[in-house]
Design a protein around this nucleic acid. Structure first.
Length: 230
DNA sequence: GCGACAG
DNA sequence: ATCTTGTCGC
């Protein structure tokens, strides 16, 4: 798929912070798309000794949840893990993978936050702005914000709040199962984002998009590890 | 100064 | 992210 905006990735922490503040102005927090036929999921895994990263993208038919296409890309780690600057670590391999895609996703679900971020520019928003594609941030844990426990049933949610601003939803995707953290990435409203997450999470806590991408990326790691032993 | 802190 | 065993339940 096509990237409409780019910037250097080997930058200092200070420059990364400034870049986030500048690009965060471009985030669109309302529904801004026509039809969503293809939904994609992304996940990244790390190789212990080779300091390599693998990113997988799996594209689904949004209506039937059948897998349409999947790709994997590898890259070298060139940015440390710093909470709040996560995208500078994982986006390089993700961008490589997206460029291998033959189909163009209408919506991308990311492993991590969207605007539920100190500068309102988490991984999902960063990706959305660079490709000008609708994205949703879907995290297993919280980066920041306060919330009260949502109801115990699937579909119930409570607001995630930071300095009097609603930055996301704590959403229960299965009855009596620990909720997940959903936030706007780009070109989508919070309500629509939650509806989509529920739609693509028919059976487990995490969306099928994330689960399939996770399986694929770990398969790639397994292959790599096998080669290194021989 | 003391915690908190996406993956 | 990754390191790690068994175990409870459908």
């Amino acid at each position: 798929m096509k990237q409409i905006l780019d910037h250097p990735w080997d930058i200092t922490e200070t420059d990364a912070l400034a870049l986030q503040k500048r690009l965060s102005l471009k985030v669109i927090k309302q529904d801004h798309f026509l039809e969503i036929n293809y939904v994609a999921g992304i996940d990244v895994a790390y190789s212990e000794y080779t300091s390599q990263l693998f990113a997988a993208v799996v594209v689904f038919n949004a209506k039937t949840l059948e897998v349409i296409e999947s790709v994997v890309a590898e890259d070298a780690i060139h940015f440390p893990y710093i909470p709040g600057l996560f995208s500078f670590r994982e986006l390089p391999p993700i961008i490589k993978a997206l460029k291998l895609l033959k189909n163009t996703p209408d919506l991308i679900v990311c492993d991590g936050q969207g605007i539920a971020h100190p500068r309102r520019f988490g991984l999902a928003s960063h990706l959305g702005v660079l490709f000008d594609v609708p994205t949703i941030g879907c995290g297993k844990t919280r980066l920041l914000g306060d919330y009260i426990e949502p109801g115990k049933m699937r579909g119930e949610r409570s607001p995630l709040v930071d300095s009097d601003e609603e930055i996301g939803s704590v959403l229960r995707t299965q009855n009596h199962i620990k909720p997940i953290f959903v936030s706007i990435g780009h070109r989508i409203s919070l309500t629509t984002a939650c509806e989509w997450i529920l739609k693509i999470s028919p059976r487990y806590r995490l969306p099928e998009t994330t689960r399939q991408a996770d399986q694929l990326v770990n398969k790639a790691l397994y292959v790599l590890n096998s080669k290194q032993k021989n």
